[in-house]
Amino acid sequence: MSTPLLPDLDQVLSLNAQLAERYGGERGVSAPEVLRSTLCRPLDRCGGGILDEAAWIFAQILIERPFAGANARTAFAVLDIILRLNGHRIALHPEALLGELRGLCSTHTPDPEQIRLWVHRLVEQPDLF
């Protein structure tokens, strides 16, 4: 099994800045150590492979809110990038996906296990070629 591809800290910071600029919200990081530990966490601590790692990173950004703004947008963009880099695609129609995302983000503290199950359900089988 090959090493999964993940965005690095600089890429995620750039992504957050772009999303905040385009859709509104403050730019920058309010909790740099939280963000660093979220992105640098070894994959083997998740135990379930890239889908669990992607779900964990998504959940941590939603729960810990390490950015000054655009946390939910950045969390989803990072999730999508991780999935795509590793051959997965989101299998939900965009309108259905938006409704589900709003539901996940509307709770005060999203449930990491609910997010993990949601990520497993929403992806297509990986591209093999």
Rank of each mutant, 00 (worst) to 15 (best):
T3G: 05
P4A: 04
P4S: 07
P4G: 03
L5G: 01
L6K: 01
D8M: 11
D8W: 13
V12Q: 01
L13P: 13
L15F: 05
N16H: 10
Q18Y: 03
L19D: 05
A20F: 01
A20R: 00
E21W: 14
R22P: 00
Y23D: 11
G24V: 03
E26S: 14
E26D: 14
R27Q: 13
R27G: 02
G28E: 13
G28R: 07
V29M: 09
V29F: 09
P32D: 08
P32Q: 07
R36T: 14
C40F: 15
C40D: 13
P42T: 01
R45S: 06
G47Y: 09
G47E: 11
G49E: 15
G49A: 12
I50D: 10
A54Y: 12
A59H: 03
L62P: 02
I63Q: 13
I63A: 12
R65T: 09
P66Y: 06
P66M: 04
F67A: 02
A68Q: 04
A70L: 02
N71C: 01
F76S: 04
V78Q: 10
V78F: 15
L79Y: 07
I81M: 12
N86S: 13
N86K: 08
H88R: 14
R89M: 10
A91W: 03
H93Y: 04
E95Y: 09
A96M: 12
R102V: 11
C105E: 10
H108R: 08
P110E: 06
P112A: 03
R116Y: 04
W118H: 09
V119T: 05
H120L: 14
R121N: 15
L122V: 08
V123G: 03
V123Y: 08
E124P: 00
P126A: 10
